[in-house]
Design a protein around this nucleic acid. Structure first.
Lengths: 230, 230
DNA sequence: GCAAAAGTGTTAGGTGTACACCCATGA
DNA sequence: TCATGGGTGTACACCTAACACTTTTGC
């Protein structure tokens, strides 16, 4: 039984909504689903779920991510909380938005069908239910700020990636083009990438060397005042 | 009556906790109160309040800020949402943290007594209830990031302030010392301050000129790609 | 006249940015 | 052999950071 003062308070439905982003062939994609219940059943929506009494917020997010993508241990961060009275047309619901960055290589295509979900090009996302477009805009703003100063981007790539791939990821995030030489110089000077002896021949005849992100080295550098910056 | 699917879900108490910061004589201060109900009655706590059915989240924050400080139209932003199962020792409560920056000049001292509240030097804040220390740490991190790229700081100063005051504010936020000449050059070059014909003689015999933040000019500059940076 | 804070410019080093050509390979 | 994308170095402009002395005025 709740202590006295608590019992006088109102209670609310609490949900999480997930902005799930992936990257493929130079473009960012958002995972969009069809809403499964009234009101607005069938409309485009972010992945979401209700908080349960036996779950922490982050457990709810992990559960929702697992249900829709089949992936565990996904990189995710809170975007913010949306609490307008009428934000959900069905009932008063306070919703916490999280974004997740994942590597499309490991994505379970089957689950897409189960949930009526699809990957939509970020630039072409149309109207979503409620305040979900706002959540998406807020996410992109956060992503742009964070990606410049923290090595988030690697979550969107396979473990082994090429420098042209990495560059095109940043170009997609910032909707701009970057100078190849400057980009390579900057990222390599940080000494957080490990060059492999293997080439990706899928993009060109010559092939581009694979690299991987060296997290140990990055963590070690952080200790000594280093900071990531693109 | 809630639509069918909603009715199956759990409901939760939702609260807001406010990290209220002020600045005086070169130091940042946090408004701390004594918890008014069990459990942990009398312990040091952030200002907080429960979300009500007829309020949006930001209305709740405004209400709490007004109750505790007597000030309306305070600058505030969301820090994040804290949803661990046992974060509140009394009951399951999901709490959204907001920080507020205010000008101590207008602060209503009377309300301090009413609420058993006090301004504590930020550097000397001790243990707070639940996860409130975490909320405070997260706030300081956000403040440090934001204050460097957005003109938030002016919310902590009176409308008229001197450059030595402004500098000591940034020194307090970043816990560092800055070079007077470089600081003045940088801030004045932005052309967002308006020099007044009046001096503050309280800090020295010679007196320092008052300036004020020119929001119109700042907004105008933003349009043309300018960005604030300290 | 002196103590105490306000105010003022210059320089060197480092960082960001613009820019064009050769390389490796499969078809 | 040629078309395609991968890979490389330099020069200049700009910004940052370091640094010391003069001014004002109340006491």
């Amino acid at each position: 039984m709740a202590p006295l003062f608590y019992r006088e308070q109102d209670k609310f439905y609490v949900s999480v909504d997930c902005i799930i982003l992936g990257f493929k062939e130079g473009k960012l994609y958002l995972l969009i689903s069809k809403r499964k219940f009234e009101p607005l059943e069938g409309a485009d929506t972010l992945m979401g779920g209700f908080l349960k009494s036996n779950e922490s917020l982050s457990q709810t997010v992990s559960r929702v991510l697992y249900e829709y993508t089949g992936i565990q241990d996904v990189f995710m961060e809170q975007v913010g909380t949306y609490g307008d009275i009428d934000r959900d047309a069905g009932e008063r619901v306070v919703s916490i938005a999280y974004y997740a960055l994942l590597n499309l290589e490991f994505f379970n295509e089957e689950l897409c069908k189960v949930h009526n979900a699809r990957w939509e090009e970020l630039e072409k996302v149309g109207e979503l239910v409620f305040d979900h477009n706002q959540m998406l805009d807020d996410t992109i703003n956060i992503l742009r700020k964070k990606a410049a100063t923290q090595p988030l981007g690697f979550n969107l790539l396979p473990e082994k990636f090429t420098l042209p791939q990495l560059q095109s990821l940043y170009e997609a995030i910032y909707q701009t083009t970057l100078d190849k030489r400057n980009f390579r110089k900057k990222i390599l000077e940080m000494n957080i990438l490990e060059k492999l002896d293997e080439k990706d021949k899928s993009g060109s005849k010559r092939g581009a060397f694979y690299y991987k992100f060296n997290k140990e080295k990055y963590d070690q550098l952080l200790q000594s005042g280093f900071y990531f910056s693109i």
